[in-house]
């Protein structure tokens, strides 16, 4: 191990190249998989390479930390890395929230016949306005849209068929059976429990740390199970699918990507939990766990946004 002055510059490593190989294989494999007649083999090989690399890479980072060659300055580099990684994740969701805003506020009314508003002025000919207005006859742009523009024109032959029911707030009397509410409670609680774990660790109370962290992982699992149940309910009973036009599209993509991030966060916390069991963290040195906790708070914040924008304010 060479230490360059006060800042640790690691030795050469085979891992970055192996990681790039894994990512390249995954990308190539994913593309060939989605094309008709494709198989998942190459993608799975890439995933296996990636998993092995990540395991090895983080093992080395942990090992370096155990050996005490990680200075405060290097730790701050890791902190900055995590900050900006979370910021990039936030921007990914901004992209989907922005798209939802655009289709709900602007596209819907335009498709519903308000195309003339704003786009055309007094000098526009009636024919031009009619042309823009009547492409999708009778489309009702209220949100959530249960009938797609496609259905208003093609009726039975439509490719995009709206759901029978949306995931919206069902009214106070049916509140007790509304899954998103439970999910919100579960996720907010888990943010509190992970904070409890963090404080317990800082106070040097390892037992409490492991208990609270274990509970957080459990709550993450509960959230994912409930989310899966909601999807089954949507597909089986509400006819709400990816093909249900823009409502299904935005619903599944926003909640789906959030769910994927919850999965990732749960894995991060689970690893922290297992490391905690092995006695890895102490009062002052526990950034691996702290980063996972920040990530967990981040997915919680995204969920609160989702809860209000996707579920409540319909």
């Amino acid at each position: 191990m060479s230490t360059e002055g006060s800042y640790y510059v690691p030795e050469q490593s085979k891992l970055p190249l192996a990681a790039a190989l894994g990512m390249g294989t995954m990308a190539f494999g994913a593309a060939s998989w989605v094309i008709e007649g494709g198989t998942s083999t190459v993608f799975l090989i890439g995933t296996a390479i990636m998993a092995a690399v990540m395991y090895k890479w983080w093992s080395i980072v942990i090992e370096e930390n155990t050996q005490g060659i990680v200075s405060d300055q290097l730790k701050y580099s890791y902190v900055l890395g995590m900050y900006w990684f979370i910021f990039s994740e936030l921007m990914f969701f901004v992209c989907f929230f922005g798209s939802l805003f655009y289709v709900r506020v602007l596209v819907g009314p335009w498709l519903g016949g308000e195309a003339a508003i704003g786009v055309f002025d007094d000098t526009a000919t009636d024919a031009a306005i009619a042309n823009a207005t009547h492409l999708w006859n009778e489309y009702d742009p209220t949100w959530p849209p249960l009938i797609t523009p496609d259905q208003t024109v093609n009726a039975e032959g439509a490719k995009f068929v709206g759901p029978q029911e949306a995931m919206s707030f069902p009214g106070w009397e049916r509140l007790g059976s509304w899954l998103p509410l439970y999910n919100t409670i579960v996720l907010i609680s888990s943010s509190l429990t992970v904070d409890k774990a963090h404080h317990a660790l800082k106070d040097g109370n390892r037992q409490a740390f492991i208990r609270w962290l274990g509970l957080t992982v459990f709550l993450g699992g509960v959230f994912l199970v409930l989310q899966a149940e909601e999807y089954v309910h949507a597909y089986k009973e509400l006819g709400l699918t990816l093909d249900s036009g823009i409502y299904g599209t935005t619903f599944f993509l926003l909640t789906g990507f959030h769910g994927a991030h919850v999965t990732l966060g749960t894995i991060m916390l689970l690893i922290s939990f297992l490391r905690g069991l092995k006695g890895h963290f102490n009062e002052t040195d526990h950034f691996g766990f702290e980063a996972a906790a920040w990530y967990w708070h981040f997915v919680d914040v995204i969920w609160i946004g989702l809860f209000f924008i996707v579920y409540v304010f319909d």
Partner: peptide, 21 residues
Amino acid sequence: LMDINFGTSFFDAAGGGDPVL
């Protein structure tokens, strides 16, 4: 990717989306 392979309609007005998006 979703529009091409998984039936979503982000960029398809027939489903309520918009190519301009």
